[in-house]
Design a protein around this nucleic acid. Structure first.
Lengths: 183, 183
DNA sequence: TATGATAAGTAACATAAGTTACGCAATGTT
DNA sequence: AACATTGCGTAACTTATGTTACTTATCATA
């Protein structure tokens, strides 16, 4: 029987996320990750084919973390459902800057625009809340998403420093403002 | 007397901008720049202290290019002045993705938020056009800027693909929508 | 307790990038 | 026309990073 693995894939992925948080995606090197784990680089390459696979695992982990933000804010009842989804996106950008940049500010150059399954779930909520048609609701959502992404990305890059109250107020401005446009 | 320089600082900077356009900031290496110029790396280090200084020159050049976009759209008369400034920002993001990312999507972590001299020039335009107070105009502008930056950054990363007409329409939605909020 | 399979640590190799020493060559002046 | 100056190309050195060969250590089972 061979010796046990010193770390699991999940432990290594988690450490890789921490390195990314501290040093950004470019700081995630084999040696930096090994140091974070307190081992040599060998255990990493024992469980991952190469560093590219580690980066990919970090992307997936970041996506999971984002979804936990979404789930938390969508069930807290603190904001109406639709607003909560935007607040979660922005909160993720604020508290997990590097992960946000990794997921939502990277170049989509090649990749086709995702079918955005999340959006499919949100449109009905808007239609129900506002009484807009599907087409109007889709445009409304796209425009609101521009705002949410704008705020989030500006916060992620320290272009803006807003607290939750300010964010909430600005979101309301846009929501009520846009609502008057869609009649 | 020494031999003449093979290139000027400006020529090298211009080539560096082109490399950045093609390969992004990380692709701007001494050797890549030398190849773009058709020479060895020596002329570069003869006129620039190091690559960091070249990168800095690229930033300045990018800023100049952005300002030329601004100047062009602000004088074309195609859009009202205030809208034109936003359209220029977005057009710059669309046509100069890498330069836009360099200037407006980099982390401002350390740097203090600039006093934004540009903004000082724009606020009076808004006050005059809308009749809002200075305080209201500043908030209105900040919110519009969130939208403009949101659209621009989404376009720069291929998160969105919009033509000028769509952009103009969405800008109008936000402008008229927000105007109803500021009474 | 001895053994086989194999994970881990060490240290090396390969590649890429910034930077520079060296010798040649170009240029305005004497 | 010879010279002093110094930019240029070549090729090297240095550092950072991904990756791997080799050796040692571990662990369940016979």
């Amino acid at each position: 029987m061979p010796p046990k693995f010193k770390f699991t894939r999940d432990e290594i992925t988690s450490a890789a996320v921490n390195v990314t948080r501290k040093k950004g995606p470019d700081g995630l090197t084999a040696r930096a990750l090994a140091e974070e784990l307190g081992c040599s680089v060998k255990p990493i390459f024992g469980l991952f084919k190469n560093m590219e696979e580690v980066q990919s695992a970090v992307m997936n982990a970041a996506q999971d973390i984002y979804e936990s933000y979404l789930a938390e804010d969508m069930t807290s009842g603190k904001y109406p459902l639709y607003k909560a989804s935007g607040m979660a996106y922005i909160r993720f950008a604020k508290e997990e800057r590097e992960l946000f940049k990794l997921l939502f500010m990277r170049d989509r150059g090649g990749e086709p625009l995702e079918p955005t399954r999340e959006v499919d779930a949100i449109i009905p909520i808007i239609m129900k809340t506002t009484g807009l048609s599907r087409e109007q609701a889709e445009r409304f959502h796209l425009e609101m998403w521009v705002v949410v992404h704008g705020i989030a990305s500006m916060i992620a890059t320290s272009y803006l420093i807003w607290n939750e109250e300010q964010i909430s107020g600005v979101m309301t401005d846009f929501y009520t403002g846009l609502r008057t446009v869609y009649k």
